[in-house]
Design a protein around this nucleic acid. Structure first.
Lengths: 191, 191
DNA sequence: CAAAAGGTAGACAGATCGGTCTACCTAATG
DNA sequence: CATTAGGTAGACCGATCTGTCTACCTTTTG
């Protein structure tokens, strides 16, 4: 083939787009290989099963967000800005997905399709934990003598963030996320 | 059959359980009719298609929540309590679903499986709008001379509520929802 | 009693599902 | 040059999908 990108990467990219747009269960193996421009056997040479591919999808989306978030964090001069950087990383994600039809958090949407005990749900929960942790650590710097309050406020801001993402996903644009960022800023002002 | 409950109702109840637990796309027609104890043709005599049944499922979940919320509202003595009643209605939903494995908001989870333009997504967005509206109207009574602030606070509390539901669903219990209720109460205290 | 309404079991259709297998084809490497 | 690693197309498998159809059965109602 003219395209020299390894099959595994092309499959993951194709799966990413289809899983996000159409849902995990509704997306068939054949649709993925067709979009990747790859033979079906290449999928099973790189992934043990569809479930394995879904796991890899969740992992890669998590890492993608970590990348966006790290960049935003590096550009943040103060703990306060680091809190808002987490909000910005969600806005980045929304902007990235906007062209193809923004449908909210790809990780949560995938988790919503998995049954109660599935390890994929725990992986998604871990990403939400990580976002809250990043907020909490920045808040600890802002409130060095009140760790309890830092923890409560971090939970508060995490709910704001995830709730705005839920609403934004349903509405198809990022206005709610922008509002949440403003609200978060005013919560920080009141500390 | 010994059970005289009409087929349509039994189908909707069976679909409700399976859709919530296993996901909409992953649940097949045959599984629904089997659980309802009903012939396959009875499904197609009552619903035009699976998509139609999904629409009815979303509608019935919305109405179920409206019922829980109305009850909570009636037991609320003040505008402040009416705001918290909306949080309680979400807690009721979590408690109700807890036995079979709590997986978060059934409406949002269903929406997460629908493609971008699907009318089901708009119906779910409408439920979130309604929750925010109920909060906003109570807040207007508390802040009769500051409608702007009532609106902003309502959005803030809606994000809190939906974000906590997201987190709670991923974690499988209602601790996050209880935390959100506490945070909401303290936000109300600061008005 | 007769008609109508609602429900039954199960066969059936065509499509699609996830997954396997074979036989062949390159391109890089020792 | 020979081997090996990775990729190809496409047939194939059994299971399952949504949806249709027939022929029969019960219960209610006029």
């Amino acid at each position: 083939m003219t395209d020299r990108t390894p099959a595994r990467e092309r499959l993951l990219r194709a799966a990413s787009e289809l899983f996000y747009n159409d849902g995990v269960v509704a997306t068939g193996i054949d649709a993925i290989t067709a979009r990747a421009g790859v033979a079906k056997m290449s999928l099973y040479n790189n992934f043990a099963s569809k479930a394995d591919l879904v796991q890899a999808y969740i992992q890669s989306r998590h890492e993608e967000w970590q990348g966006l978030c790290r960049e935003r964090m590096e550009g943040a001069a103060s703990p306060r800005e680091r809190v808002l950087a987490v909000f910005d990383s969600y806005l980045d994600h929304a902007a990235f997905e906007y062209q193809r039809g923004f449908r909210g958090c790809g990780l949560y949407n995938a988790a919503a399709e998995l049954p109660a005990g599935d390890p994929g749900r725990a992986a998604v929960a871990a990403q939400k934990e990580e976002a809250e942790r990043l907020i909490r650590e920045a808040l600890r710097e802002m409130l060095p003598d009140d760790e309890a309050r830092a923890g409560e406020t971090a939970e508060h801001l995490s709910f704001l963030l995830e709730g705005a993402m839920t609403r934004a996903g349903l509405e198809g644009h990022d206005a709610r996320l922008k509002a949440a960022r403003r609200i978060a800023a005013s919560v920080l002002d009141q500390l």
